[in-house]
């Protein structure tokens, strides 16, 4: 049962992963990538990582939906009505990737993997939580900082307007002057 599920998910993941770069239409490419990543989430469920698997599904769905909008915004010809290739150096890349795969596969098959140590905990989620809030606290904090820094950095990068544009040079304007008024008046 699990083997069949693994096989199906694996095949779907690889095929839709390949299709990402074969579809003309950006919407199809994005959602093909989503399919591939959802399969990865499914494989994680098979591995017994329920929480992380579901979180992957959740995050990837939202991420891809947003990505689709960026696609439509920035890509020329997002629907693929006028087929065109936007690739470069296809041959070289194919060679590199082929070699990389062969090397990786050889490594995977030839490496003397150590025997399994210990048993999976009854509740891996609890295990993860205890670890993140305990010995791995530093990792968690670094991740938090990185996320926060990214939020700030992306906003700075993406926006053009600052508070002086919104509230005037002396920051005294009672109402922000925005192209579109918000709901709180800030």
């Amino acid at each position: 049962m699990n083997d069949v599920a693994f096989g199906l998910l694996a095949a779907l993941a690889v095929v839709s992963g390949v299709m990402v770069f074969r579809f003309d239409s950006m919407a199809r490419a994005t959602f093909s990538l989503l399919t591939s990543l959802l399969c990865v989430g499914g494989e994680m469920l098979l591995l017994g990582l329920d929480y992380l698997g579901i979180v992957t599904v959740l995050m990837m769905t939202i991420e891809m939906a947003i990505m689709a909008v960026f696609m439509v915004m920035f890509m020329m010809n997002p629907a693929g009505l006028m087929p065109m290739t936007m690739t470069h150096n296809k041959k070289g890349a194919a060679v590199i990737c082929g070699i990389a795969f062969v090397l990786l596969a050889a490594g995977v098959l030839l490496a003397p993997w150590p025997a399994r140590q210990g048993k999976p905990p009854a509740d891996p989620t609890m295990d993860l939580g205890m670890s993140l809030m305990g010995p791995q606290m530093l990792t968690m904090m670094v991740l938090g900082m990185a996320l926060f820094a990214t939020i700030v950095a992306t906003v700075v990068l993406a926006t053009r307007r600052g508070r002086y544009d919104r509230f005037g040079d002396d920051l005294r304007a009672p109402q922000a002057s925005d192209p579109v008024r918000g709901g709180v008046g800030r």
Partner: peptide, 29 residues
Amino acid sequence: LLASALFCVGLFGALTQQSIVMLMMGLEL
């Protein structure tokens, strides 16, 4: 093996795609 297959497909995309958004899709993979 599955993981390395996905990695290599993604690598191929990241190397060949001209569009930055498509490149990011390769990275995601």
